[in-house]
Design a protein around this nucleic acid. Structure first.
Length: 530
RNA sequence: GCGCCUCUAGCUCAAUGGCAGAGCAACGGACUCUUAAUCCGCAGGUUCUGGGUUCGAAUCCCAGGGGGCGCACCA
């Protein structure tokens, strides 16, 4: 069996296509060419030319010379005339390549260009007889040889696993993927602009922490060698940002990655991006208004409308137009379950309500956790399907960092924003009484003792020390950036708005196949069951 | 973690117990105005892996792996 035949037998047609492209690389080098040259000076992008020459008649010549560059996506070979359609970051454009213009030798080189190659071309802007805007190529350079073939030019790449693992291919061939990440970028930029304009200072705080606090979630654990010290990846931004408010940064925010060692779903990725905002002298009402300003502006900047597609119902859209309703969670519970409950009710009565609604609970839960469970299990998913809604006045028992509602120690001035049945944002008037904060921490430690793996296990003494220096009245807010991106891009899965979502590792054999260099005769020998 | 669905050529998909196929991509050829170019020809397979049932398995069964969806989990 010859080497080539064996290779083909083992790895199939992919190896044949890669071999042929690799041989072109060799051939280019053999005549002193460079298949991976240095820079190319581009004078115009495809979209700039489409905009500037939108009105040309068919068959027009402009005498305007341009340099363009991009990846070859389509090729139509007519013999002595070749049409190439390339794609750059702005869009795509046709190259008109005539043997009469280039001469036989240069034309033959263009005929060797494969789909997926990067090329740079220089020539006159024209339209064809059919009116297609084109660059009539006077010279064309290979800028990068692609060794692997692109997916089907018409159907693209649809296998979700491959799309996520090989996002580079997804982005090359799927316009919807490019659009999604453009929307995400514009939304993030918009949030940042809004906060900057309102005088907020952007900061960065530690990702590696001695104790992960600020939320109820199981953290990722790692280890610092030099300190010989276990460390945690942060699960929230909150406690460090409030230390900065103590330090006098009265308006502060961070856009950053947080990590939660929990289940993966269409709405949860182990690492995700939050923006948290803290505003001295403000309260939770101010933060609701700020949330609304931020998301409304993001919608306008990213998609130019207040009408967003419903994540689960293709035929429905959600209207983001201000002002969004604000309702107490107990009112929403009554409205959607018919049960009148209060955090001041006796525990047995609340347990009876949970039993009626078929909600399970732990025997150590107080009234706050029970009321919250009712809201969480029976009401949340029903909220925000026509327009966003703020729910507020959450039990203190489930809000250990929030300030009590004036005159009601069992409730807090906390809110959550729901859009399309999903939680998008969470905020409150910050608890700034260090004595009460210590009590709340100790309650959490007790919950951890009950087996609550998400409860904070230690009292954050440094945070309490900071509070003792005086945290002014402060409003705080956390927004899940990924969920905003899902909302605005109309994507039903968080994996669609994260460039490289968390996946199981690829199989060894598959990784091997994908990572194998070429040409290299040894690889093929190692792979197969020869 | 549990349940359901799914895995066939580089890509997108057929073949439902009886010869593994098509389109695109590739390769050879024709073609100076195409638009997913067209036309002729040719090649490409560990049907995810391992067992089993059967005269015969891509197809049925069991186990494992990847993925999707749902549930559980998720202040």
């Amino acid at each position: 069996m010859s080497e080539d035949l064996k290779r083909t037998t083992i790895a199939g047609n992919l190896e044949e296509q890669r071999r042929i492209r690799a041989e072109k690389v060799t051939a280019i080098r053999a005549v002193g060419g460079d298949p991976y040259p240095d820079r190319f000076v581009r004078s115009a992008t495809s979209v700039e030319l489409h905009e500037r020459f939108a009105q040309l008649e068919p068959g027009a010549e402009t005498a305007v010379m341009v340099s363009v560059a991009g990846r070859v996506m389509l090729r139509r070979n007519m013999g002595k005339l070749i049409f190439l359609t390339f794609q750059d970051v702005t869009g795509s454009l046709q190259l008109f390549v005539s043997q009469a213009d280039l001469g036989e030798e240069a034309f033959a080189a263009v005929a060797d260009i494969d789909l997926g190659d990067w090329v740079g071309a220089q020539g006159e802007v024209i339209t064809t007889r059919k009116g297609e805007l084109s660059v009539k190529v006077a010279s064309l350079r290979l800028l990068t040889k692609a060794l692997r073939p692109l997916p089907d030019k018409w159907r693209g790449l649809s296998d979700t696993d491959t799309r996520y693992r090989q996002r580079y291919v997804d982005l090359i061939v799927n316009e919807d993927a490019r659009r999604t990440f453009r929307v995400r970028h514009q939304a993030v930029r918009s949030l940042r602009h809004q906060l900057d304009e309102e005088g907020f200072v952007e900061v960065e705080t530690p990702v590696l922490q001695i104790e992960a606090g600020g939320a109820a979630a199981r953290p990722f654990v790692t280890h610092h060698q030099a300190l010989d010290q276990p460390m945690y990846l942060r699960i929230a931004l909150e406690l460090h940002l409030k230390r900065l408010v103590v330090g006098g940064i009265e308006r502060v925010y961070e856009i950053g990655r947080v990590f939660r060692n929990e289940g993966i779903s269409t709405r949860h990725n182990p690492e995700f991006t939050m923006v948290e905002v803290y505003w001295a002298l403000a309260n939770y009402q101010d933060m609701m208004a700020l949330t609304e300003r931020m998301i409304c502006r993001a919608a306008q900047d990213a998609i130019g409308t207040y009408a967003v597609a419903h994540p689960d119902r293709p035929d429905v859209s959600i209207d983001l137009t201000p002002d969004w309703p604000r309702r107490k969670i107990t009112e929403l519970i009554a409205e959607h379950t018919g049960e009148t409950v209060s955090v001041h009710d006796e525990v047995p009565r609340l347990r009876a309500v949970c039993d009626r609604l078929e909600i399970s609970y732990e025997d150590w839960w107080g009234a706050g956790k029970l009321v919250y469970a009712i809201f969480d299990k029976k009401v949340e998913e029903l909220l925000g399907h026509e327009r966003p809604i703020f729910a507020y006045e959450y039990p203190a028992e489930v809000s250990p960092l929030a300030k009590p509602t004036p005159g009601d120690q069992e409730n807090t001035d906390r809110f959550e924003l729901f859009i399309g049945g999903k939680e998008i944002a969470n905020g409150y008037s910050e608890l700034n009484d260090p004595v009460r904060q210590r009590e709340m921490f100790e309650m959490e430690v007790a919950a951890a003792g009950h087996g609550d793996v998400e409860a904070t296990r230690t009292v954050d003494e440094d945070y309490l020390r900071a509070l003792e220096f005086g945290l002014p009245p402060t409003g705080g807010l956390g927004v899940g950036i990924d969920r905003v991106a899902m909302l605005l891009s109309g994507q039903p899965s968080i994996r669609e708005v994260i460039l490289f979502p968390t996946l199981r590792p690829e199989s060894v054999e598959n990784t091997r196949r994908l990572a194998t260099g070429y040409p290299d005769g040894d690889d093929a020998d190692d792979q197969g069951p020869v």
